[in-house]
Write a protein that binds this DNA or RNA. Structure first.
Length: 286
DNA sequence: AGGGGGACCTGTGCGC
DNA sequence: TGCGCACAGGTCCCCC
């Protein structure tokens, strides 16, 4: 599920249920996810009020009135769903409303309203940490991130200098979160297609001059449109209420190998770069 | 420093 | 119908 647009979609879905609410109890149903939970996490969150929900790159940030922030990452298969007070009171409705296996419900925020926010993650690549809000930007999670793609800081000049001297393929470089943060496999493939740049092109030449400006613009467009669409729902739901995003219908190349390129009608190709699938049109991406 | 590969997990879909 | 393999939206760590 989770690249920046999916995480932003989750944030928007959770905010009405969580912002301004007190957490009666944080329930941890196992000792760890990808990493061990920080010491006394449940005690330090239970009883605190969530002042605001924020997002940085693919991280969810739950700012507490205690001065701490819960930082969460969804990994590959993590999702967060709101189960409202009525449904939570009815065991059958509880699981039915979310269409996920309760076996992988690892963390539950029990809110003062009676609503529950459930973190479900079959693969357990997701994780939570607790960081002093004032130290967030320098924390190990956020310190090295590049700018948000939709910010002015992600400009052609920033991009060109961030990739200067990088001779590896631009596809791989874009997945590295230090030049621009929040992109993953789907949106990198889609942005390169829009910019008509080959994923195999050297990063430094892809990010320079007119090409670089095209790529920056393409990244911004793709990310903005995907957020607007509620993200991409590939094999499960993206949204906090269990409904589907629909940006997957707008994918030009991702997951469409063998289909005609929407621009030139030649066949979309699938190659492997650094162990990950890359979809692109070899004819109109150069 | 940059780049590649393996590791971490479970679920699913496909070919035989 | 069943089995085994490849693959999945991420990123961390080790190695060259």
């Amino acid at each position: 599920m989770p690249e920046l647009p999916e995480v932003e979609t989750v944030r928007r879905g959770l905010a009405p249920a969580m912002a301004g609410r007190r957490v009666d109890r944080l329930e941890l149903r196992r000792a760890d996810l990808r990493f061990p939970f920080p010491p006394r996490l449940a005690e330090r969150v239970s009883g605190a009020r969530i002042e605001a929900l924020d997002r940085r790159a693919k991280y969810l940030l739950f700012h507490l009135d205690s001065g701490d922030t819960v930082l969460g990452h969804l990994g590959m298969s993590g999702r967060m769903s709101v189960v409202d007070a009525g449904a939570a009171a009815t065991p059958g409705a509880f699981t039915h409303a979310r269409a996920t296996l309760p076996a992988h419900d690892h963390v539950v925020f029990h809110l003062e309203t009676g609503a529950q926010v459930v973190f479900n993650d079959p693969r357990r690549f997701g994780y939570f940490d607790l960081v002093e809000t004032g130290a967030l930007q320098t924390s190990r999670w956020l310190a090295d991130l590049g700018p948000e793609p939709l910010s002015e800081a992600f400009s052609p000049s920033h991009f060109a200098s961030a990739f200067s001297g990088r001779r590896g393929p631009v596809k791989t470089a874009l997945l590295d979160q230090t030049a621009v943060a929040g992109l993953g496999n789907i949106y990198v493939c889609e942005a390169l297609w829009r910019a008509r740049i080959s994923p195999r092109r050297r990063a430094d030449t892809a990010a320079a001059g007119a090409r670089g400006a095209r790529l920056v613009a393409a990244v911004k467009e793709v990310i903005a449109e995907a957020i607007e669409a509620g993200g991409s729902s590939l094999r499960d739901h993206a949204k906090a209420d269990g409904s589907l995003g629909y940006f997957q219908n707008a994918h030009a190349v991702y997951g469409r190998d063998g289909e005609p390129c929407p621009r030139c009608a030649d066949e979309v190709a699938l190659v492997r770069q650094s162990g990950r699938s890359t979809f692109f049109c070899p004819t109109c991406q150069r």
